[in-house]
């Protein structure tokens, strides 16, 4: 039994700036990290491994240097990492990306049963939250998004019950397996790698699957398979803030000022 976690290597967005002329990310010198939401997906897969003894495979579609991020997955103890990389996969939008990932999972599922696929809820660079659901659709798995807890998992009966974190409430959903989960940060606390596993991971193999392996129609991958493309990236303009009152000298007066302002903008109801 194999649990698959999908991860993406993303630029460390706290260090990213946008080129004002070309409206593209300035990528030079920006370190790459594992998409933070995906670290929780990976951790959940490892917890299933700890609990049920299943194996864990990690997939990532990206350029060859994404191998570095896959090694980080190896260093926390996954069994198999596969980099899906081919020139023809480049320039993919969320649809084309989910085509490649779904094909890879499908291939894995031919060797070994894959009851669960786990993804982060979204990436911090694209922020679309579409790839996970896209994979689920293409694989015919039930999609359970925004999961913050697996309430119950019955691998024998093929059932899963999860808690979904929605705005202001939680929703408990039960679904048959196989399923695809997208997870939020509250799901778990990712483990810290131990040194022996790290040292082993430094030299462990990262499998490379290109389109010769996946045999996808060129019209369904990469730029050609992408019905959407980025027209422009820009930082939204923001109103200038102001400091009101004297919070230290006159806290009560400042609160009144604030309430008046909020009332004036219809942001507060009396």
């Amino acid at each position: 039994m194999l649990v698959v976690a999908c991860i993406k290597q993303v630029p460390d967005t706290t260090q990213v700036q946008i080129d004002p002329v070309t409206n593209t990310l300035i990528r030079e010198g920006i370190p790459f990290i594992m998409n933070p939401y995906d670290t929780h997906a990976l951790e959940e897969a490892l917890r299933l491994k700890d609990r049920y003894g299943c194996r864990v495979a990690v997939l990532s579609m990206g350029p060859p240097n994404a191998e570095m991020t896959l090694r980080k997955a190896l260093s926390v103890g996954v069994d198999r990492v596969i980099l899906l990389s081919d020139r023809c996969f480049g320039g993919a939008d969320t649809l084309a990306t989910s085509n490649v990932l779904a094909a890879a999972i499908h291939k894995l599922a031919q060797e070994e049963e894959v009851p669960l696929v786990i993804c982060g809820k979204q990436t911090i660079d694209g922020d679309t939250a579409q790839v996970g659901p896209g994979i689920a659709t293409r694989l015919g798995y039930t999609q359970l998004t925004l999961v913050d807890k697996i309430v119950d998992l019955d691998l024998v009966a093929g059932k899963i019950r999860v808690s979904r974190k929605l705005e202001g409430r939680h929703e408990i959903v039960e679904s048959p397996l196989p399923s695809l989960l997208t997870v939020v940060r509250e799901m778990n606390r990712p483990r810290y790698p131990t040194v022996p596993i790290r040292l082993a991971a430094e030299v462990a193999p990262v499998e490379l699957w290109n389109n010769e392996v996946l045999q996808l129609d060129l019209q369904s991958v990469g730029l050609k398979g992408s019905p959407t493309w980025v027209k422009k990236i820009f930082s939204p303009e923001r109103d200038k803030g102001e400091i009101i009152g004297d919070g230290i000298g006159d806290p009560a007066g400042t609160v009144n000022l604030l309430v008046e302002k909020l009332l004036g903008k219809d942001l507060l109801e009396l």
């Binding site: 460390d12 706290t14 260090q15 370190p31 990290i33 606390r189 483990r191 810290y192 790698p193 131990t194 040194v195 022996p196």
Partner: peptide, 28 residues
């Protein structure tokens, strides 16, 4: 730390910041 990954929780972000951004706060 090295064998058991057992340490006070608040150190996790410190360790990650150090590794990723080479400073304790994780500033760029």
């Amino acid at each position: 730390v090295e064998m058991l990954a057992a340490f006070p929780e608040e150190l996790l972000s410190l360790f990650e910041n150090m590794e990723q951004r080479s400073n304790p706060w994780g500033i760029a």
